[in-house]
Nucleic acid binder design. Structure first.
Lengths: 171, 171
DNA sequence: ATAGTTGATTTCTGTACTTTAATCAACTGT
DNA sequence: ACAGTTGATTAAAGTACAGAAATCAACTAT
């Protein structure tokens, strides 16, 4: 009086889970569970990055043109604990591609070297400038002919916060 | 012959876990476990966004100036399944803040309306232009005086891929 | 006294196990 | 014959439980 029985194909099919693949229980801090579930739902925000050439037709950019998939956080933020964002104001760095209200990604763990764009505090105001070293003198150089360089001396209290790595501009 | 015994303060202290807060086991797809652990280690990539004013001194940008904490993915990508990235080439949109090699964030779920910056396929080549509607005619407008507008007609095979929402520029 | 040892206690952590879900095939009634 | 029912089977999902870790206080030896 047997029903069913051992046979191929019986049982719940594989890949029927919500993720279509095997899962494992992992302990997560409660405060992050919500955002982790969102993160997982979006497959870790791994989105395709295309080049500029696409094959003809228009079903979708050609698969073979996909350079790779990237996650903005991982791609832009190398030192998460040392990184912060600043909203840019003014247009003294317009020629470096920094516009009013852009979001600047600042990495505090990078050395502010000659030629780097840095965030500096001048008179209690954050400002973006390119750091320029010349004959042991340090300058904060704007990249806009309407503005003047500022030399960093003992007198003026200038503190360099970090190095700007990327600019996020809203079109 | 008893040692220890029930008493206040005995036992492993609370908040001694690696996250300093209660945890819960959650099932995750195996392929994403690695990146989820990274995500959790970085506290969900929630980083502070500062304004441009800071209080004097230089221990750290004043706490009260923190607008909020943001996650780049959540902030920039509203429709994860419809979003992709394209690397910009050429400088026909320089006046819109789009430079060579910038990464463009493109949302395919947004309507390409008049005035929006769009990604279009022209002759099998991806191009960025501003969409311009005038008397029922559609144009792809460069934002660089050295380039000319292109009218979208039945003849030329122009397909609009999506709307550019943000530009990521490396300094 | 004082330092080290040991049992009791509490929390943390990973995974084993139970419950639920989905499918197949034999069985049953019309 | 055909549709519906039921047991067997396998996979998925959530949780309970056992072992590890950390701390306290009584005990012990010096």
């Amino acid at each position: 009086m047997s029903h069913g029985g051992a046979r191929k194909g019986a049982g719940r099919p594989k890949g029927q889970g919500q993720y279509g693949e095997p899962t494992k229980p992992i302990r997560l801090p409660e405060s992050l569970i919500k955002s982790v579930l969102k993160f997982v739902k979006n497959k870790g925000y791994q989105l395709p990055l295309y080049g500029s050439k696409i094959s003809a037709g228009h079903p979708s950019p050609a698969e073979d043109d996909i350079d790779r998939h990237i996650d903005l956080n991982e791609h832009l933020i190398k030192h998460p604990t040392a990184t912060f964002f600043v909203r840019a104001s003014g247009n003294s760095m317009i020629n470096a591609g920094i516009h009013e209200n852009d979001i600047l990604i600042v990495d505090r763990s990078l050395q502010p070297q000659h030629g780097k764009v840095v965030i500096a505090a001048v008179d209690g105001q954050l400002t973006v400038k390119r750091l320029h070293k010349e004959n042991d003198k340090l300058f904060l150089m704007p990249e806009n002919p309407d503005y003047s360089p500022l030399e960093i001396t003992e007198e003026n209290e200038v503190y360099i916060w970090g190095v700007v790595t990327n600019v996020i501009h809203s079109v």
